[in-house]
Simulated assay, not measured.
Amino acid sequence: MEPADSDGHGELSSRFPTASVTLNGDDTCIAEARDLAADFLARAGTDHGVAVSARAMDLTRLVVSELVTNAGRHAPGPLRMELRILDDAVEVTVRDTARVQLLARPVDPRRVGQHGLEIVMAVAQAFQVRLEPNGKAVTARIALADEVRGSGSPLGAP
């Protein structure tokens, strides 16, 4: 994973670490993405003094897994995963080539599978899907401390 600034280029910021990586979009990239996210958070802790709880590490790996899985299944071509540390959270963005809005399905305890978006929204502080000219960007914000519980509110919302 290459260090990047907020524009996806340049050097790793000393205050707010960011990173981005292009993934091939096949099934093998899911584990790679999880490992890269865990490494990013570990380096944020050791190199930048960012406090990352074990719960935040686990939830970030889960969110990355769900977002990358979804993008790989429903969008042709490579994906881009971006990670950014904010004051008290990590923001995970997965960009893909499918210009389709994502919608959470209604709760159905009889449905087998297809709960990834529900899971992400349940554990994230904030969640957003932005359509872009060449696809979409799906962003989830995960609290770095244990005491904050996810609400799935839109990014930018209190």
Rank of each mutant, 00 (worst) to 15 (best):
P3W: 00
S6T: 09
D7V: 08
G10F: 02
L12Q: 06
A19S: 12
S20W: 10
L23K: 02
N24P: 07
D26F: 09
D26A: 04
E32F: 05
R34F: 04
R34S: 12
L36E: 13
L36Q: 14
L36C: 03
A38Q: 04
L41I: 06
A42M: 08
T46D: 08
S53P: 07
A56V: 15
A56N: 14
D58G: 04
L62H: 04
L62Y: 07
L62P: 02
V63Q: 02
N70I: 07
G72D: 11
R73W: 12
H74T: 14
A75S: 15
A75I: 10
P76Y: 01
G77C: 04
R80N: 08
L86F: 12
V90R: 03
E91D: 13
E91R: 14
V92S: 02
V94L: 12
V94D: 00
R95G: 10
T97M: 07
A98Q: 15
R99S: 05
Q101W: 08
A104T: 09
A104D: 15
P106D: 12
D108M: 06
R111S: 13
Q114L: 11
H115V: 11
G116K: 04
V120Y: 05
A122C: 02
V123M: 08
A124R: 03
A124E: 07
Q125I: 06
Q125F: 00
R130D: 15
L131E: 09
E132Q: 10
T139A: 00
T139W: 03
A140H: 07
A140V: 11
A143Y: 10
L144Y: 09
A145G: 09
R149T: 11
S151D: 13
S153C: 04
L155M: 05
G156H: 07
A157E: 13
P158D: 15
